[in-house]
C-alpha cells in the first residue's frame, strides 16, 4: 500500500466528473423507480402500488421468474462446484495446466458476448441438442465459471501456505487437507462465487436470448421483448422489482466484503510478493 498519510487531492474537475458520472449512472434508475410508483389520473400524478400488483399477478411474468430462478440456481450451483474444484486443484502449481486454465477463463471473460452466444447456439445445433432451459443452463455455466474461478482464486492466494504444511506435518494427506483446512477457509469465497454467478445468470439477457427454447423465456428476455413495444408503468414496476432484487443482494454482499477481494487487486499482489520473499528465504 502506498502511504496513507500523503495523497494529494485530485483536481476539482476529477471529483466533479466522478459525481456527475455517479448521478448519470443512478438518475435514470431513480426515475424508473419513481415512475413505477406513479399513476396518471386525469392528468394528475398519484402514488400507487397498482403496477407492482399487476406484475405479481401476471402469470406469464411469474413463469418467467420461475425459469430465471431455476436456471440461476442450477447453473450457479454447477459453476460453483466446477470452479471451486478447479481453483483448488491448480493453485500453487506452476504447471502448464494452471496457465491453460487462466487462458481459457480469460477467453470466456473477454470474448464479445455475442460471439459467445452465437457459437453456443451453433454448437447446440450441431449437437442436435434441443433448445430449452437445459441449453440456457449450459451457456450460463460457461460464462459464470470464470467468475467463480476468479473469486475463489483471489481468496486462495491469500491463504497462508504454511497452514497446509502444518496439516501435512500433523499427518494429513492431500485430500484431508482439502477437506479439513482449505475448503472450510474458502467458504466465504465459495459463497461469494455462487451469489455472483447467480446474479450474472439472473441478469443475463443476450446469451439467454440466443439459446433459449420457444416459450421458455427468462425475465430479462421477457422484459426485452416487452420494451421493444415501448415504455409503460407496468414495465417500470417489473424493472424496478428486478433491479431491487439484484441490488439488495449486492448491497448485502458488498457490506459483508465477500466481493471485495474481486475488486482489490492489491491483496493478491501483496501475497505474491510475500511468496517471493519466503522463496528467497529458503
Amino acid at each position: 500500500m502506498s502511504s496513507e498519510r500523503t495523497r494529494p487531492k485530485a483536481p476539482r474537475l476529477a471529483s466533479m466528473m466522478f459525481w456527475i458520472m455517479l448521478i448519470l449512472l443512478y438518475l435514470p434508475i431513480l426515475v424508473m423507480l419513481v415512475g413505477s410508483l406513479l399513476e396518471d389520473k386525469d392528468g394528475s400524478l398519484q402514488w400507487t402500488f397498482k403496477w407492482f400488483l399487476e406484475v405479481i399477478h401476471d402469470e406469464n411474468l411469474m413463469d418467467a421468474l420461475k425459469n430465471s430462478l431455476f436456471v440461476g440456481f442450477v447453473s450457479s450451483l454447477l459453476s460453483t462446484i466446477l470452479g471451486t474444484a478447479s481453483a483448488v486443484a491448480l493453485y500453487r502449481t506452476t504447471s502448464r495446466m494452471y496457465w491453460m486454465m487462466e487462458g481459457l477463463s480469460m477467453i470466456s471473460l473477454i470474448f464479445p458476448e455475442i460471439v459467445f452466444a452465437l457459437s453456443l447456439l451453433s454448437w447446440f445445433f450441431v449437437l442436435k441438442l434441443e433448445l430449452g432451459l437445459q441449453t440456457v443452463i449450459i451457456a450460463h455455466v460457461s460464462f459464470s465459471l470464470s467468475y467463480v474461478l476468479m473469486t475463489v482464486n483471489s481468496r486462495l492466494v491469500t491463504l497462508d501456505p504454511s497452514l497446509e504444511d502444518a496439516a501435512r506435518d500433523l499427518g494429513a494427506g492431500e485430500w484431508t487437507i482439502l477437506k479439513t483446512i482449505i475448503l472450510p477457509l474458502l467458504r466465504p469465497a465459495i459463497l461469494g462465487g455462487f451469489i455472483l454467478s447467480f446474479l450474472l445468470s439472473f441478469d443475463d439477457f443476450l446469451i439467454t436470448y440466443f439459446v433459449n427454447g420457444v416459450g421458455q423465456d427468462t425475465l430479462p428476455v421477457k422484459l426485452y421483448t416487452a420494451m421493444k413495444m415501448g415504455v409503460s408503468p407496468k414495465l417500470n414496476a417489473l424493472s424496478s422489482l428486478m433491479f431491487l432484487m439484484t441490488f439488495s443482494v449486492l448491497i448485502f454482499f458488498f457490506r459483508s466484503g465477500s466481493f471485495r477481494i474481486l475488486f482489490e487487486e492489491g491483496s493478491s499482489k501483496v501475497r505474491s510478493d510475500e511468496r517471493e520473499q519466503t522463496n528467497n528465504l529458503l
Binding site: V31, M32, D203, F205, Y224, V231, S239, T246, F254
Partner: peptide
C-alpha cells in the same frame, strides 16, 4: 457505487435510460 450498476441487469439500465 461505481461497480454496483454494472452487476445489475443491462436491459433494465437501458430501459431506465429510455424512460428518462
Amino acid at each position: 457505487a461505481v461497480v454496483l450498476p454494472f452487476l445489475t441487469n443491462l436491459v433494465i439500465r437501458i430501459y431506465a435510460l429510455r424512460v428518462f
